[in-house]
Amino acid sequence: MLITLRDFAAKILLTFLSRIDRKAYATFIERLCFFGNKDPSIKDFVTIVVRPKNNYQKMVALDSATEDVAILIQGPIVRECDFTINTLKLYKEYFPRSPVVFSTLDHLTQIEKDNISALGVTIIICNKPVVTGFLNFNLQRETVLKGLNAVNKLGVTKVIKTRSDQRIYSRFAISFLNASLIQFPSKNITACKGRIFLLSTTTLANFPLHVCDMFQFGYLQDVVNFWSIPAHEESVNREAFTSKMANKILVGEALIQKTTIPEVSLGRFYATMLYGEQSIGDPSLTYHRMLQEVIGVVDQGQLDLCWPKYNSFEVSQDYRVPWILERLTFEKWVALYAGHAKKVISFNPDALI
């Protein structure tokens, strides 16, 4: 009850401040961080990032060639603060030459369809699979594949696959990603045209083949291959997953289970597609090879990517290293790619998730 009252009081105070003055809202939070950071009894430094929810019209689009890169946003529409529609508006402002596709299972209202279509965004409505898979993986797979099929008809060669509950704020994002594709070419051009760049947020260093399912950038055919994974044959909802987690799943078990964590499903599938089934016998070596040859990593901060669903409090767990969910950040990946760092990837099959 105390927590409920505290949260309610905080919401009232912040709402009051934000309506009086937009700066007062941010200043209040900043002052809390300022005094906390100066207090030696508090163990952590806290910094904040302030991003506009929808007041970005004054931002100037870069005069860069992005017409060969499509943006695919997939997932359910986020109606709170018109998050998804405002994200689509932002992308059309920042990247006017890039075609944008929104692929969803949702039943959009006619007003939403009209508003999205008016932006010049292609809408794809998908049917919900009967079997939802592990943590709704089949739903994500359906919207991604249908969205990529629509992108394939646009005549582009590259694609950004992102989610409807995330937003890229950097105007340099496409230029940066295009440059990364050139700067770090694939070392296995017989299997793929280029690297697929993943977000480090859920691409892990101590959990082989655990690759980000939320964000990919690369040549269209490579991303299509990445997502050509068969659908999961059984469903595991979040409650069942949480129950399993309480029983402590081992990393080694997660890597071999037929229906498993979406991130592992994708990493394992792409590895076997490139190197054969036998490659899973040594997941650490295979993961290392993939990261050197065909996969790249970018950080959330490099794209200025906002994920308010989970990252309103963007705490970096990397300060707790070593731990099993250590992120494979850009600097770690570059060190691995260049051969300047050893033991970037580790594997303990008996480690608990």
Rank of each mutant, 00 (worst) to 15 (best):
D106V: 02
L139Q: 09
D68V: 06
S164A: 15
P129T: 05
K146G: 14
E263Q: 09
M290K: 06
L220E: 06
L145I: 12
K113R: 15
V297S: 03
G339Y: 07
V100K: 07
M1A: 13
L14Y: 11
I249G: 00
L148D: 03
F172D: 12
S312T: 06
Y270R: 08
E142M: 14
G276C: 09
T190H: 13
T87F: 11
S228V: 02
D222H: 03
E233W: 12
T162C: 10
V151R: 13
L177F: 02
G301P: 11
S117C: 10
G147K: 07
L14Q: 14
I295P: 10
V121Y: 03
L181D: 07
T122K: 08
E234P: 00
V211F: 07
A351Y: 03
I42C: 05
G339V: 06
S170P: 13
T66V: 12
M1K: 15
V321A: 12
Y337V: 01
Q57M: 05
V144M: 08
G276I: 11
F134P: 01
P96E: 02
G120F: 07
M273D: 12
Q183Y: 10
I73M: 13
V151K: 15
N237K: 00
F16H: 13
A10E: 13
A338P: 00
F197N: 04
G301T: 11
S180K: 10
P52L: 02
D165P: 13
C126K: 05
Q74M: 10
F241T: 01
C306T: 06
Q57L: 07
I229K: 15
Y56R: 11
E112T: 01
F207P: 00
K43C: 02
M214A: 15
